[in-house]
Design a protein around this nucleic acid. Sequence first.
DNA 1: AAATGGTTTAACCGTATCGTTAAACCGATT
DNA 2: AATCGGTTTAACGATACGGTTAAACCATTT
Lengths: 220, 220
Amino acid sequence: MDTKEKILSAAIEVFAEKGKHGTRMEEIAVRASVNKAMLYYFFTTKEKLFQEVLITALFRISKRITDGITQQIDAMTDPRDKVTLIVNKHFDAYSQSSDETNILLSSMTTCPADVEKAAKKIAEEHPAVFCPEKFVSFFEECKATKLFRNIDPRQTLVSIVGMNLIYFAAKPISQLLLNINVNNEQEFLKERQASIVDLILHGILTDPEPPHTTKPGSVL
Amino acid sequence: MDTKEKILSAAIEVFAEKGKHGTRMEEIAVRASVNKAMLYYFFTTKEKLFQEVLITALFRISKRITDGITQQIDAMTDPRDKVTLIVNKHFDAYSQSSDETNILLSSMTTCPADVEKAAKKIAEEHPAVFCPEKFVSFFEECKATKLFRNIDPRQTLVSIVGMNLIYFAAKPISQLLLNINVNNEQEFLKERQASIVDLILHGILTDPEPPHTTKPGSVL
DNA sequence: AAATGGTTTAACCGTATCGTTAAACCGATT
DNA sequence: AATCGGTTTAACGATACGGTTAAACCATTT
């Protein structure tokens, strides 16, 4: 791994832990086992390094979601399975890219303008990985065939993202309030994922009862 | 308003905008029209001031939710109305205490330990405002009468919080991805709130169809 | 082996920012 | 009017932190 890569991955770690403003260039240098001046040699300024980190994080998450879905969705016939896949892939992406998710979450609240900039750049340069409209039109189709109730596709997407993100965003509070013993977090995550799928399916399907063929989507 | 109060409310504003680490004591002083030394006179250190701010924020949000619900829930007979009320009051609390919500959101990701500490303190000192168990037992009752499906009450609560918080946490992204024109945000918020209620009702009720008596819960 | 150019280093600079301090202010008490 | 305690101020450390620089290093080319 060359120096620039070492810096970038150390930066992702530190920014994930401390947030944009809590991060010190010195700490990134130490964690990358690199002289501090190297950060400025490759990235010019903290601001620019952070933006590169943010773009990388957002890109990785989006790619994970999109790739996971596009690889499997065509093999499916039952729209119920497709919805399940969409929900599961969101959850997987957030739980598997936890550093990237943390960066995104903290940036959305402390520097939303940066997030907007990063999102716009990715949408421009990689339109294939950023495709909410695909989901929207899929939902529209299912509404047309009366398989889905009269729901707002965009709102539903926001809700899916919200339910999937919340636990990662609010770990301390959810654990405290809901008496989750952190010992078997794995177990809890599985239940959480299943619960989201269940709520969404019953929330949007006209007739949720018929069991769908398989249980797709990886679980951690 | 005395000096200490002036400092605290200025601090809430600044911490909400800039986050814990992005906030400068000087800026709080200026916004409170107070000499910087006064911050240290009343709060000793930035760390302690922040913790007071965090506790205040968490308390206000919790109180808003709890008060709103307890005032109206007893007048209701239909459990559908009660669920609607619970969801609506969460949404109202987050959208009305936007500074406090921002503080909570940014702290959860950049300093979760502080949030945990604050939450524990409130749970100890004000057990009445922190009552997730009430919601849980309400859900359990409705499950017993077969009015609710076999859902996990704790997971459902987390989902309610998640769907209600996500838009405030992720404004830039949701707006960008979902083509929401910020012009009529009010309109969007109403739709968002209604959509969450709809999804939850259909997601957890055994038979969601019978229309419920009134549309309770304030809308902004 | 000299030169070239990308890479790396130690040492340093300036300023932003947390926090301190000693004195002044000022209303209430005696 | 003297004093006393809570409050406020201007000025001042100390240092953490972002960023710079000039020289050294070193692999490759000529």
